[in-house]
Computed example of a mutant assay.
Amino acid sequence: MTSILPSRRLLILSCSTTKRDGPQYMPARDRYDGPLWRTLRHADPDGQKAQVAFLSAEYGFREARSTIENYEARMTPELAAAMKAGGLGTRWPRPKTQRRVMPPGEHPGMHIASMTEHGRKPFVEVCLVGGALYLDVMQHFVELFQADAL
């Protein structure tokens, strides 16, 4: 049996309505406190079994060690469609106004590129966990990551 290194596994979880209080910014892995995230922290407390990313209605696709604020946002069909249409280059969270030339936030492409060492260490196993709207966006992003060899 061949062993797959954790860095070659990717687990993408949907965000969680339940969040932990704490500092203004804390890693998403620690902020989210729904059943999936509790199970992750229990089953893989040191992050050795897989690299973990999340999909959030507020933050889009990010690596789970990314720091986030506590927020309230739900995925809607319109938001899922906007995320898919934006592809790997759209920054999240979306700006509240159109005043800035360069919108704030981070985009999925930068996170997946970092997680794969810019395609030098692509994932060989990917697991997606979430509700239907989240899974739809996750699957779309995974297809884009594969097309870009990330």
Rank of each mutant, 00 (worst) to 15 (best):
M1C: 08
T2S: 14
I4H: 15
I4V: 15
L5D: 13
L5E: 15
S7V: 09
R9G: 05
L10C: 11
L10A: 13
S14A: 06
S16Y: 01
S16T: 13
T17R: 00
D21E: 15
G22A: 01
Y25K: 07
P27C: 10
A28N: 01
R29A: 13
R29P: 02
R29G: 02
D30K: 02
D30F: 04
R31Q: 01
Y32T: 00
G34A: 05
P35W: 02
R38L: 06
T39L: 10
L40E: 04
L40I: 12
H42S: 13
A43C: 10
P45R: 05
G47A: 08
Q48W: 02
A50R: 09
Q51K: 13
Q51S: 15
Q51P: 03
L55Q: 00
A57S: 07
E58F: 00
E58L: 09
R62I: 09
A64N: 05
S66R: 14
S66F: 12
T67C: 12
I68A: 01
E69K: 07
E72P: 00
R74K: 05
M75H: 02
M75Y: 04
T76R: 10
L79A: 07
L79Y: 00
L79I: 07
A80R: 04
A80E: 02
A81T: 12
A82Q: 11
A82P: 09
K84I: 15
K84L: 05
G86F: 04
G87E: 01
G87R: 00
G87H: 02
L88S: 02
